[in-house]
């Protein structure tokens, strides 16, 4: 029986076994390839999405267990309508290879939604599960602070 799934505001009927991780539903079935596969064991954060507003590793959530609406990087903002975090990423020229950045941005956006003005320690805690082999961390930190400032001004 197909599973009903809401992703970026659109409802989908997915006909895959219950235990297929959300990551592979998004990527292979729905064609939402912005969410990346890095490790499959929740140790790199490349597949971070929001479920009901909370940052989750999509490689660890089985299709049958998705408990709320899903937001992926494609739903956070678009090239013509960037989210404040994406805007800060562009302004700070964060990405190098770029592969991990969808996950970094989703993690950072979830952090800022709960902690609008995070300290360095709070950023450390929230971001330590996201790996970047290019080593873009200094700019990630700067971009998170900048996005917090921008959201503060908006808010």
């Amino acid at each position: 029986m197909p599973t009903t799934l809401t992703v970026n505001g659109t409802e989908y009927q997915v006909d895959l076994p219950d235990d297929v991780p959300l990551l592979w539903v998004l990527r292979d079935e729905l064609g939402l390839t912005g969410t990346k596969y890095g490790c499959g064991v929740a140790s790199c954060g490349s597949c971070t999405v929001h479920i009901d507003g909370e940052a989750m590793r999509a490689c660890q959530v089985a299709l049958a267990d998705v408990w709320g609406p899903v937001t992926t990087i494609e739903g956070l903002g678009t090239p013509n309508a960037l989210h404040a975090v994406q805007q800060a990423w562009v302004e700070h020229q964060v990405a190098q290879c770029g592969y991990c950045q969808s996950g970094q941005i989703m993690q950072a956006a979830a952090l800022l939604s709960k902690t609008p003005n995070p300290s360095d320690e709070e950023i450390d805690l929230a971001m330590s599960g996201n790996l970047c082999r290019c080593g873009t961390y200094p700019r990630i930190r700067a971009a998170i602070h900048a996005a917090a400032d921008a959201l503060g001004r908006e808010g």
Binding site: T33, G34, G77, T78, P79, V90, A95, G98, Q101, S102
Partner: peptide, 12 residues
Amino acid sequence: DMIAKSTGTAEF
């Protein structure tokens, strides 16, 4: 490549 890589639209 920055906007594409910040929006999940860069094709790897």
